[in-house]
Write a protein that binds this DNA or RNA. Sequence first.
DNA 1: ATGACGAACATTGTATACGCTTTTTCCCCA
DNA 2: TGGGGAAAAAGCGTATACAATGTTCGTCAT
Lengths: 246, 246
Amino acid sequence: MSQRQVDAERKPASGSGRPGKNGDGAERHEAIHRSISDAIIEHRLKPGARLREDALSEVFGISRTGIRKILQRLALEQLVTLTPRRGASVTRPTAEEAKDVFDARQMVECGLMPEVARRITAADLERLRDMERRERQALKAGEQSSAIKLSAAFHGELARLSGNDTLAAFVEQLCSRSSLILAVYGNAGHLGCESHDHDGLLRHLEGGDGERARAFMSRHLKAIEASLSIHEPEDESPDLYEIFSG
Amino acid sequence: MSQRQVDAERKPASGSGRPGKNGDGAERHEAIHRSISDAIIEHRLKPGARLREDALSEVFGISRTGIRKILQRLALEQLVTLTPRRGASVTRPTAEEAKDVFDARQMVECGLMPEVARRITAADLERLRDMERRERQALKAGEQSSAIKLSAAFHGELARLSGNDTLAAFVEQLCSRSSLILAVYGNAGHLGCESHDHDGLLRHLEGGDGERARAFMSRHLKAIEASLSIHEPEDESPDLYEIFSG
DNA sequence: ATGACGAACATTGTATACGCTTTTTCCCCA
DNA sequence: TGGGGAAAAAGCGTATACAATGTTCGTCAT
């Protein structure tokens, strides 16, 4: 009765190409997905937080069926972990996963830079500079949540410019996971992406120098990774079988 | 009553580490997923084929709920396409998607080769040679279905050896999609992967020469892509809005 | 004969209900 | 007072039922 509902960012009515009849209530699911996803990326839901189906279904005003569907998609994207009879929780990346994610970003994002430098247009540069500006403002205003999300969006948008949707989607997924990694292994205080880094990257791209951009991106990612303190926290569930019966 | 069910490859009972109690009936879902996935990869379900929920739920003996879950996962993996009120069908990749997939494979699989060459062990080589042998046998026996699946498994296994699970999972997904692409754009007669190619690749890896292996893989993938006849079939659903109101 | 309208059918979308597993709480006993 | 066990509660897994929508086939009018 009195539970407050959330409206998950109302979208501009019809997003599809067709003008007249708008199809579906499935856009609702999309909105809820983004809503939860954003909350995780912005660290408003911290790693380890439990996501009970009942609670979510009440909050968003749909039944558990729809929530389960969204939760499963988030699990496929590695943002939440689904433990068999225990339900969903925000993923707590291991040190190994963190290394894998940054290695993958190193390979893909750097590899994409030459093609991006070749295809980038003035309008693209304008949009990216705007994003970079907003990111810097958020950082200066102390809004870490926004800054993290904007940084991930920046890297994602950059990857989109390559024209390869498959790789771009992969990069976006890696960026989301990176945000989780920052939440676990990042030192509070200085965020991963220093904004002047993004600015420098844009200058290389503007000059059309793909190789320089690639090298810059490589240093950028290495710097982020180096700023983490990746030490496996004391093992919360030690494998007693291995310890004693081994 | 009289519908034949399928048992989707019974697994060896308890896969988990713990000896006694086995967890879940969720392994059933995994098995069904693999069953459908294999059917698509082996071209026993051709692109465009419709996958009705009722039919699948009868065949596998579970309710539509479980089938929907599996279908959605397959959609995330790009093996099936979910059209809003029309249901699921095997994805028919576009020419652009095909290009994206092969570009992605070029970047990731080639990039992985040096690390694989560094880490590969004698036991790994043994296993891969065995896979290559079986693939060649299947090809000789004219069993295209098996050959395609074995080829994809070979590339996936290779990626696993890099130790990076994230990238390995991505490669496996790309290989599955490649199988779909072969189904649409491949010329009947000669399959993509000539088996001697895989043999040569293994020789380079055995020698520990990562750079040679990378170059070989690059040529290998280019050869597969070149063997395709990528011509967009006559547009089945032209965008009338763009044509007329444009 | 052909095309359009309408009704019956087929198929997906969503919610709710029930059963089972896990967890928690409370009481009793040592 | 602390620990163990049983009962209750909470939460997830699955199935089924109902509603909405798309499709197909038949009929009627031109």
